[in-house]
């Protein structure tokens, strides 16, 4: 599904978190929102999911204005930074949640839910752990439960907030490769937020660099490295003068 952000602005009190952000996203893109902490990237992601509402601007899903649709009408697959798993529910029930809350007419049968959840747990390599509680899992496993839970509702867009942030280096590496491979298979429109440029460059098709609530540059990793738009991008990516086009 294509997503378009048009002139989004959002302030918290007197702090302008996002200022006039416009960003078209093609169907099937894998995009990294890259920027330092407090740059507004998470706010943009939350506005796409319907977890914040912009003060100005519009959000379109497939050309349809969803700016003031609630999160539960948008049903974007959202993976929270802290996972926000339901700690009182088993892994299986966490993943099944989005299916169980469907209105009776469109709710799958019990067997269909069991089958679908089993399939998802297989995809995120957690088959056999369905009965565990979130507290009994490692960080990487929880992350994958959160992912499976978001995928269960068949989202048209997948949003991940610092998906690899809290994990140790080895697990992080594996999960990155997994996400890239998963996207290559499904071509699900995906946005993830990160402050780690290596992560962004390795995984994403396109990198959107954000600072102070403003998009500084948007382009493929190669483009951004070759032609950094301004001093901030150079600084933030720590590009050595020799690597850039402008330093002769």
């Amino acid at each position: 599904m294509s997503v378009e952000l048009k002139n989004l602005s959002k302030a918290f009190g007197r702090f302008a978190a996002v200022q006039d952000v416009s960003l078209p996203i093609e169907t099937g893109e894998l995009i990294a929102l890259l920027g330092p902490s407090g740059s507004g990237k998470t706010t943009i992601l939350r506005m796409i999911a319907g977890l914040e509402f912009p003060d100005a601007g519009k959000i379109f899903f497939e050309g349809q204005d969803v700016t003031f649709r609630s999160a539960y009408q948008r049903r974007a697959g959202f993976v929270f930074q802290s996972y926000a798993l339901f700690n009182h529910l088993s892994v299986f029930e966490n993943v099944a949640f989005g299916l169980r809350v469907l209105p009776r007419r469109s709710r799958p049968s019990k067997q269909a839910i069991v089958a679908r959840v089993g399939e998802l747990l297989e995809i995120v390599q957690l088959a056999g752990l369905g009965r565990r509680l979130p507290a009994q899992l490692s960080g990487g496993q929880r992350q994958r439960v959160a992912l499976a839970r978001a995928l269960a509702i068949g989202p048209r867009v997948l949003l991940l907030d610092e998906p690899f942030g809290a994990l140790d280096a080895r697990v992080r590496k594996g999960l990155r490769q997994w996400l890239r491979a998963f996207h290559d298979q499904t071509h699900l429109t995906t946005l993830f937020v990160t402050h780690d440029q290596e992560e962004a460059f390795e995984v994403a098709d396109r990198v959107v660099i954000i600072d102070s609530g403003v998009i500084q540059q948007s382009g493929s990793p190669a483009e951004v490295c070759a032609n950094p738009a301004n001093d901030f991008v150079v600084d933030f990516l720590d590009l050595k003068p020799g690597q850039t086009g402008w330093d002769g």
Partner: peptide, 9 residues
């Protein structure tokens, strides 16, 4: 635009 919006119902 200034209509208040809440995430949770």
């Amino acid at each position: 635009m200034s209509r208040r919006r809440h995430v949770l119902p």
